[in-house]
Amino acid sequence: MSSSLLHPPAHLPPSVALKLSQGAPALLRTTPSSISSYSLSSLFRAAETPELWTVYENLMLSCLRTGDEQSAHLCLERLTNRFGADNERLMALRGLFQEAIAEDDAALQIVLKEYETILNNDPSNMPVSKRRIALLKTLTKIPEAITALNQFLESSPTDAEAWAELADLYVVQGMYQQGIFALEEVLLITPNAWNMHARLGEVLYMAAISNDFEANKYLSESLRRFCRSIELCDDYLRGYYGLKLTSSKLLSSSSQSSKQSKSDTAPLPTSTVERLNELATAKLSEIVRRSAGGEKGWTGYDQAEVIAAQALLDQDKVSITR
């Protein structure tokens, strides 16, 4: 049983998803079709492991993604046999299945109605409220999704996943201020999440580009966020990429405006930014060189990210020689 089936498959590349779902019929055949927890026959069967149900859930997601609805339905049936149809998580999974097989928007509206009926009966059903928000997003009703998500966060303000989703919705809408706030809430809950620090840095950078008025303030804040993500994670490609991007931008813009203010968010001294820029360049080229060379212990980077870093370095070289 591969380890990737024990984790939510949303981030997996399509090739891995296809491989997982191709293995689904075989896996479903080898595992027993029903496991009853209290009966004499369970003494003679293989023991029920908690992993099995995680595997079913993730397998179902992979199969839905690749269009293998039969296997997905089988997974769903087995989960329902075990946990009952009124299990909150299973309600959400069933809704997900119906969303996936829906023909058109009208069918999706019916699913949305179903979610709302469930939520009317039991407003505390977290998985289904999350599905409802996701479905609103699918139907490109982003403002409604944002409102629903805000209501959701009123009742459960420590849900980092929901805050991150809210931040993404705001950023999609171009509301960077609110997105930054939501990401800061995520960081209050998970202060060590290095990827979220980098994400906040990216959103701050986008805000700086789209906003001329306070661009420098956003840029130096973004620089600080990328520095924090590197502090939390050695050789973090995304962090160094952002550091290089923001420091170059700061260097090119600081020549135009040089007014300084003494506060916590004051712009960094130019010499510091220059040194950070040099450090980022050195680190990026080291990562690109070692990863491209396939050195042992440097193979975990995403190839697309390495290529992007290479492109950034090349672009930098061109502008220096010019």
Partner: peptide
Amino acid sequence: KYYVGNPFRVLESRPGFVDIRKQRSEF
């Protein structure tokens, strides 16, 4: 067996809010 990669990656993939239709069309 207990390797999970970056444990905070779920904050970016967000399995609770997965958009299955988009994933299907991308696939």
